[in-house]
């Protein structure tokens, strides 16, 4: 995934309108591009071509249905470890080797390693965290979500 800004002239006003409008949703209809293109004042073909180009230049990470991961039956948990500086690379290798570790970030804090565990079943979360503790000899703090406030983050294009 592209992690640097695109040049200012990489996208025009219509591209921006598309990005802003289609973040909210895309029609579930027989000709959804036609339906979505109309309020933007462009044609179905134009919309398809522009989305295709936006995807190519890396302005879009994904276009399609977004699932609620937990609704699919998986279990997730944010975890953190206070890793001694001199052991950081070693512990990172140990932690990343677990297939249950989905994301892992180094952060500026006493708790300097933050990762998400993704397991099929809820009971596997604690087992995996325990195994990481055994492997690293470090405490794995667990921060399962108690409540999510999901409104939908909008990037203004």
């Amino acid at each position: 995934m592209r992690r640097t800004p695109l040049p200012q002239d990489a996208i025009d006003d219509i591209d921006r309108k598309i990005l802003n409008a289609l973040q909210d949703g895309f029609p579930l209809s027989v000709r959804p591009f036609e339906d979505a293109a109309k309020p933007l004042g462009i044609t179905e073909t134009d919309l398809i071509e522009r989305i295709s180009r936006l995807r190519e230049i890396g302005a879009i990470t994904r276009f399609g249905p977004f699932m609620d991961a937990a609704a699919m039956g998986g279990a997730f948990c944010l975890c953190a470890i206070e890793v001694p500086c001199e052991r950081f690379e070693e512990v990172m290798t140990l932690v990343n080797a677990f297939p249950e570790v989905a994301h892992n970030y180094e952060r500026v804090h006493k708790l300097n390693m933050w990762f998400v565990l993704a397991c099929d079943r809820t009971e596997d979360i604690a087992k995996t965290a325990d195994r990481i503790e055994a492997k690293t000899g470090l405490t794995v703090l667990r921060f399962p979500k108690l409540k999510e406030f999901y409104i939908g983050f909008k990037v203004s294009a």
């Binding site: 592209r2 949703g25 579930l28 230049i57 879009i60 276009f63 249905p65 977004f66 609620d68 294009a157």
Partner: peptide
């Protein structure tokens, strides 16, 4: 089916996810 999954919350939305890094939110 997509409609039903959207209504029940299994699908949060069908949409574009802009790459916020590409759009300057770095």
């Amino acid at each position: 089916r997509l409609q039903r999954m959207q209504e029940s919350g299994v699908i949060r939305r069908i949409a574009i996810a802009p790459n916020h890094y590409a759009l300057g939110m770095v």
